[in-house]
Simulated assay, not measured.
Amino acid sequence: MIHCSSIGKTALLIAMADGSETEAYVSRAREKGFDVVTGKVGSMDVQKIIAAVETAAKREGLTDDSYRSQHALYHAILDALQGLGRGPLQLGNILRTVGLRFAIVRGPRTLEDMDDLWIAVSMYGMIGAPIKGHEHEVCGLGINHL
């Protein structure tokens, strides 16, 4: 298993993992002190993707009601979406859809720098026309200081 040494690498590995591999990465990340939430979302609507990630983070206690916490998560999501869309993400209005796995990881930026708290959002999946076989892989990562 690859060493989960930074928040970004950890988030990406978890989002890109399949099946039982996902749980192994999540367990390893938690052993290292990271808080982790995973999920899936598919949509032609960017707002639904944002809502799915925000809801998962809130439901599992990775964010609280403070403005700072919500704002950091929101910007990490936007940065991850920028990676998916190779710039500002447009979906339904240009007949594009995504099917994604996502990971939200909260913890230190690196395992050597344990005094800071960060949040990372990674997304991995498929993007393309809403026709089977007309899609390709994408990934995105956003990291923000809490």
Rank of each mutant, 00 (worst) to 15 (best):
residue 115 D to R: 10
residue 19 G to H: 10
residue 81 L to Q: 01
residue 46 V to G: 00
residue 77 I to T: 00
residue 105 V to K: 02
residue 68 R to S: 12
residue 15 A to G: 08
residue 79 D to Q: 09
residue 75 H to R: 01
residue 41 V to E: 02
residue 74 Y to E: 05
residue 110 T to W: 10
residue 137 E to S: 11
residue 129 A to L: 11
residue 90 Q to M: 13
residue 54 E to G: 10
residue 97 T to K: 06
residue 8 G to Q: 03
residue 129 A to Y: 06
residue 130 P to C: 12
residue 81 L to I: 05
residue 103 A to C: 07
residue 80 A to S: 05
residue 104 I to Q: 05
residue 74 Y to R: 07
residue 107 G to C: 08
residue 29 A to Q: 11
residue 5 S to V: 04
residue 5 S to N: 08
residue 6 S to T: 04
residue 68 R to T: 11
residue 25 Y to N: 10
residue 55 T to H: 13
residue 135 E to L: 08
residue 32 K to D: 15
residue 51 A to E: 10
residue 12 L to P: 03
residue 6 S to F: 00
residue 47 Q to D: 15
residue 111 L to T: 07
residue 39 G to T: 03
residue 8 G to A: 03
residue 131 I to T: 15
residue 97 T to A: 04
residue 134 H to V: 13
residue 82 Q to Y: 05
residue 138 V to W: 04
residue 105 V to C: 07
residue 109 R to V: 08
residue 28 R to A: 15
residue 122 S to K: 00
residue 44 M to A: 11
residue 9 K to E: 14
residue 86 R to F: 08
residue 11 A to P: 01
residue 139 C to I: 08
residue 26 V to A: 12
residue 20 S to C: 12
residue 85 G to Q: 04
residue 78 L to S: 02
residue 145 H to T: 09
residue 31 E to S: 15
residue 118 W to S: 02
residue 128 G to A: 09
residue 59 R to C: 05
residue 115 D to P: 01
residue 57 A to Y: 06
residue 137 E to M: 12
residue 111 L to D: 09
residue 6 S to V: 01
residue 122 S to Y: 00
residue 128 G to L: 05
residue 95 L to P: 03
residue 73 L to C: 00
residue 72 A to M: 02
residue 130 P to L: 12
residue 143 I to A: 07
residue 67 Y to E: 14
residue 25 Y to K: 15
residue 106 R to Y: 04
residue 14 I to C: 07
residue 39 G to R: 02
residue 91 L to R: 02
residue 134 H to G: 07
residue 108 P to Y: 02
residue 97 T to M: 09
residue 55 T to E: 15
residue 40 K to C: 06
residue 61 G to D: 10
residue 102 F to Y: 02
residue 33 G to T: 15
residue 15 A to F: 02
residue 128 G to E: 06
residue 25 Y to Q: 11
residue 104 I to Y: 04
residue 18 D to T: 10
residue 112 E to A: 14
residue 76 A to N: 01
residue 71 H to M: 09
residue 28 R to E: 15
residue 75 H to D: 01
residue 47 Q to C: 08
residue 107 G to K: 02
residue 40 K to M: 09
residue 66 S to R: 13
residue 99 G to D: 13
residue 16 M to W: 07
residue 143 I to Y: 05
residue 32 K to C: 13
residue 7 I to M: 05
residue 136 H to S: 13
residue 3 H to R: 07
residue 54 E to P: 04
residue 47 Q to F: 14
residue 75 H to I: 01
residue 24 A to I: 15
residue 7 I to P: 00
residue 31 E to V: 12
